[in-house]
């Protein structure tokens, strides 16, 4: 029923071709990229070195994000301890006012940097780790419970021992017959069109 309403949307999600080794998948990905397809993706059950480049895509910018959060964590640690343990500074947040409470502990200087390093270090690590974990999933738009690829029976092998190349229907060069012919030329084990 809903198919008739989605006039602007391509009929299928794309077409997948199945391969049985990382090498053949890699070769196929390179050929597909060189043939001018841009909306393509490769699926495998373990990471394959150089696959992103073979698909003509850019490597992730995750490390920069993690670095940024690590820096924020470090500043948080230093500020938190400097403010609460070495100053009486009042900070207003909304209707509330919070004060630092400097205390002399064992005659140590107020800014006891050697003693502030452990907590600063831990917070740096904590913030970076959170950024790494959540960054991985958020940038990948996960969690995503439904995806058209899950409709394919064969695709469940992508997480086991088979390797898939997908040309998506939103690719400007995508044309059902032609694309199928192109994929046929890559010698895959099977080809399947994926619906929504």
């Amino acid at each position: 029923m809903s198919h008739e309403q989605e006039t602007h949307r391509p009929e299928s999600y794309g077409m997948i071709a199945e391969f049985d080794s990382p090498e053949t998948l890699m070769a196929a990905a390179e050929k597909t990229r060189d043939a001018g397809y841009s909306r393509i993706d490769a699926y495998s059950s373990f990471p394959i070195e150089g696959m992103v480049e073979a698909l003509g895509q850019k490597r992730t910018g995750l490390p920069k994000l993690i670095l940024l959060f690590g820096f924020i964590g470090m500043c948080t640690g230093l500020f938190l301890q400097g403010w609460t343990a070495a100053s009486n500074l009042g900070i207003t947040i909304g209707p509330y006012m919070f004060y630092g409470y400097s205390m002399n502990i064992g005659g140590r200087p107020m800014l006891s940097f050697p003693n502030f390093i452990p907590v600063t270090f831990e917070l740096t690590i904590l913030f970076s780790a959170l950024a790494a974990f959540f960054g991985t999933f958020i940038l990948s738009k996960l969690p995503m419970p439904y995806h058209p690829l899950f409709n394919s029976e064969r695709f469940s092998l992508a997480s086991q021992d088979k390797f898939f190349l997908c040309i998506e229907a939103r690719d400007p060069q995508y044309e059902k017959g032609k694309t199928e012919e192109f994929l046929e030329g890559l010698n895959p084990d099977s080809i399947e069109e994926i619906g929504h």
Partner: peptide, 12 residues
Amino acid sequence: SFSQYIIIWSAN
């Protein structure tokens, strides 16, 4: 180096 420093510095 830091381990040695923080232990000796803190104990004083």
